[in-house]
Amino acid sequence: MTQKEFEERTGLKLSADGYTEVEECYMNTDLDKDAFCKLWMDNPTALKEIERKTVLVRELYEERKCLTNLLIDQAEKWSASDLRERAIAMIGEKEYLRRKIAKGYNLWDADKKLLDEILRK
Rank of each mutant, 00 (worst) to 15 (best):
C66T: 06
E62P: 00
K100F: 06
E62L: 14
N69W: 05
I91N: 01
G104L: 15
A35N: 07
R52W: 01
L107D: 03
S15A: 01
N43L: 14
R84F: 01
K77M: 05
T45N: 03
E63M: 09
D17C: 08
N28K: 05
K53N: 15
T10N: 13
L67S: 15
N43W: 10
I101H: 15
W78E: 11
V22C: 03
K48R: 10
Y19N: 08
S15K: 15
L83I: 00
P44F: 01
L12R: 13
V55W: 07
G18N: 06
K48W: 07
E8I: 07
D42F: 09
E24P: 00
M27R: 14
D73N: 05
E63K: 13
D32Q: 10
A102T: 11
S79F: 07
E21F: 13
V55T: 06
R52F: 11
E51T: 07
L60K: 13
E21G: 14
L83C: 05
D82M: 04
I101S: 12
D32N: 14
E21V: 13
K103S: 13
Y61W: 09
S15P: 10
E24R: 15
Y26K: 04
E76M: 06
E62D: 08
D30W: 09
A16E: 00
N69S: 12
K38T: 12
E76S: 04
T45Q: 06
S81L: 05
K77N: 03
A102S: 10
D34H: 10
M90D: 08
L83Q: 03
K103C: 10
L47T: 03
